[in-house]
Lab assay of single mutants.
Amino acid sequence: THFTSQQLQELEATFQRNHYPDMSTREEIAVWTNLTEARVRVWFKNRRAKWR
């Protein structure tokens, strides 16, 4: 999946605040970024792996 810079900005900003967002937070992010909750969940999983 290719993310727009706007989507990445929103995802990264949320990641800085919370590395493990809950389901409702992921659903909110999905609405803001026009992505599915599953895409958001996978992005956070991959981002945490990169962060370690």
Rank of each mutant, 00 (worst) to 15 (best):
T1Q: 11
T1N: 11
H2N: 09
H2P: 12
H2E: 12
H2C: 14
H2K: 12
H2G: 13
F3P: 05
F3S: 02
F3E: 03
F3W: 07
F3I: 11
T4Y: 05
S5Q: 13
S5M: 12
S5H: 12
S5E: 13
Q6D: 10
Q6W: 15
Q6N: 08
Q6A: 12
Q6R: 11
Q6L: 11
Q6I: 11
Q7R: 03
Q7M: 07
Q7G: 03
Q7S: 03
Q7T: 06
Q7P: 01
Q7Y: 04
L8R: 06
L8Q: 07
L8N: 06
L8H: 07
Q9M: 13
Q9Y: 11
Q9W: 11
E10H: 14
E10A: 15
E10T: 14
E10I: 15
L11K: 00
L11S: 01
E12P: 00
E12W: 05
E12M: 04
E12A: 02
E12T: 02
A13R: 13
A13Y: 10
A13F: 10
F15L: 02
F15C: 03
F15W: 07
F15G: 02
Q16P: 03
Q16R: 11
Q16L: 10
R17T: 09
R17Q: 10
N18K: 04
N18P: 01
H19S: 05
H19T: 04
H19L: 03
H19G: 04
Y20W: 13
Y20T: 05
D22V: 05
D22Y: 03
D22P: 06
M23F: 14
M23I: 09
S24H: 12
S24Q: 14
S24G: 09
T25K: 09
T25V: 08
T25A: 12
R26N: 02
E27G: 06
E27L: 14
E27S: 10
E27K: 15
E27A: 12
E27I: 15
I29T: 02
I29R: 01
I29E: 01
A30W: 04
A30I: 03
A30S: 05
A30G: 07
A30Q: 01
V31R: 15
V31C: 14
V31Q: 13
V31F: 13
W32F: 14
W32H: 14
W32T: 15
W32L: 15
T33P: 02
T33L: 15
T33A: 07
T33K: 01
T33M: 14
L35N: 05
L35G: 03
T36L: 04
E37S: 05
E37P: 07
E37W: 04
E37Q: 05
A38H: 11
A38S: 11
R39A: 15
R39D: 15
V40S: 00
V40Q: 00
V40P: 00
V40K: 00
V40W: 01
V40I: 08
R41S: 09
R41D: 08
V42H: 11
V42N: 12
V42G: 09
W43K: 00
W43D: 00
W43F: 03
W43P: 00
W43C: 02
F44G: 00
F44A: 00
F44N: 00
F44P: 00
K45F: 09
K45S: 08
K45V: 12
K45W: 08
N46C: 14
R47D: 01
R47S: 03
R47M: 05
R47V: 02
R48V: 06
R48W: 04
R48S: 02
A49P: 02
A49M: 10
A49H: 08
K50N: 08
K50S: 09
K50R: 12
W51K: 06
W51V: 07
W51D: 09
W51N: 07
R52G: 07
R52E: 08
